[in-house]
Design a protein around this nucleic acid. Structure first.
Lengths: 264, 264
DNA sequence: AATTGTGAACACATTCACAGCT
DNA sequence: AGCTGTGAATGTGTTCACAATT
């Protein structure tokens, strides 16, 4: 996925694989739950099960962080929580702005897990003047005109876009111009960003389409199994699958304008 | 990623790589936009740019579907839209139930892109009896008691879980028992499902944590550049890329201290 | 002349399997 | 005895680069 390319300084190890980074939050969540239950140590097997991965993968992942376990014993829960939090940058405070306070934006603003891990909703921003001042999740909505000021005053580096697709690129441009360097995009559009800016996208419609693909394949397989051969073999393995990927810029063509409001 | 595993019939090519499947919706969206502008054909280069990937990848992806282009010319937009839709299973109707009609569930119910591509919200379900009958997005909310009946009557195979984390596994179990075989999970929990059931998850908090990781790394890189060496070299390449990225480079400096809790 | 389609090379990720430590 | 840490093997995904085709 992504990008990359960056030269790669070759030697010197501090390069944690992207796939590993994407799993750290999962481990952290499982560890936090254990911590709340005052469990002092955990084996790779147990923790892996709680996080929904296999234990070899988990151990390999931790080995990139430096390997904080004890052979014959397992991992110290509190210590691991700390190390992973630090690695993810969660020991510091990340002010976040949410732009587009419709149904989704409001849901995000109300989302608890948000504040819980180092993220703080610094502002809610919407283009509708009628929204201005209205509190959502206890935070008054501010008008888009204030966007640049808010970002600069609060030192916001992470922005969440929850606007209709048609407005997303424009909002993105303003966020970036004002200093935001990481964007979480919920609008169903490819965003164009300059290098150095990270974009991750969350797209309901894409997730459903992927599910539909597999769903269809299941149906086909059944039919095939019925009609063709007698495969007494197991069909699937346990695993729960992760998801989400990312994406980023690209060009946008001549006009770049996206159809209407919320296309597929 | 999600799913998959299915035994793999070995030979016989119908095995489209998971990474390719995950990009098909992106191509489809770009193609739909072209179709609406009545563009008749498109080159791999142009389409790739619109979808935010590179052209070699796109051509390779299409080669798994059977290669529907014409050398020297490009791809026929309408034809590709059809082929991809068919491959994804979007030529049929997929009834979907959304369980948990809080802020997020309501946002999902209102999400337009939902209905636009073969997906139909068959029912909205919530555990709160007070919600029963209340229309959201024009659809009356039904009580959880009705869950099994709805799924069976409508032949629902895809379920969306938008409940609090604590209720998710239980809801999941009921959905699966009633016949759902694909689940899109918005609750921040690992779901346990029997084999044969696909789960994809969408997790805001995980996405933010991944962004924070990269954000932190950016800051570290700057500092390192300032303090350590005089790298007159380019730092990143243009890449249209996707994001999430990346990588690479450098390490993070001196190391992170290893304060607190417990030594190895 | 332009652009696809694809083998071969490369890069990244997962899994195995066991040596090494507690 | 038990469990981690990790090289080596395997599997998956991406990119290159060019022959094939219109």
């Amino acid at each position: 996925m992504a990008t990359g390319r960056t030269h790669r300084p070759a030697t010197r190890s501090r390069g944690i694989p992207e796939a590993t980074v994407a799993r750290l939050p999962l481990y952290l969540r499982a560890l936090t739950a254990l911590s709340e239950r005052s469990v002092p140590t955990v084996s790779s097997e147990e923790l892996a099960a709680a996080a929904g991965v296999n234990s070899a993968k988990l151990r390999k992942d931790f080995s990139y962080l430096g390997s904080y376990g004890t052979r014959g014993v397992g991992y110290d829960v509190e210590y691991l929580v700390y190390q992973i939090s630090r690695e993810l940058g969660l020991t510091q405070d990340w002010p976040v702005v949410i732009v587009g306070i419709g149904n989704l934006g409001a849901a995000l603003a109300n989302y608890g897990g948000f504040a819980s891990r180092g993220f703080r909703v610094a502002a809610l921003i919407d283009a509708d003047p009628g929204m201005a001042g209205k509190p959502v999740a206890g935070i008054p909505v501010q008008h888009t005109d204030e966007l640049e000021k808010i970002i600069q005053d609060d030192g916001v580096s992470i922005g969440v876009i929850a606007t209709p697709a048609g407005a997303a690129q424009q909002v993105c441009d303003r966020l970036v111009a004002a200093g935001v360097t990481s964007i979480l995009n919920f609008a169903p559009t490819v965003l164009n960003v300059p290098e150095g800016v990270d974009v991750r996208k969350v797209d309901l419609s894409i997730e459903l389409q992927i599910l539909a693909f597999h769903e269809q394949r299941k149906a086909g397989e059944e039919a095939a199994a019925d009609a063709v051969a007698p495969p007494a073999v197991a069909r699937k393995q346990p695993h729960v699958g992760p998801s989400a990927d990312s994406t980023g810029s690209a060009d946008k063509g001549p006009d770049g304008d996206v159809p209407a409001v919320m296309p597929a």
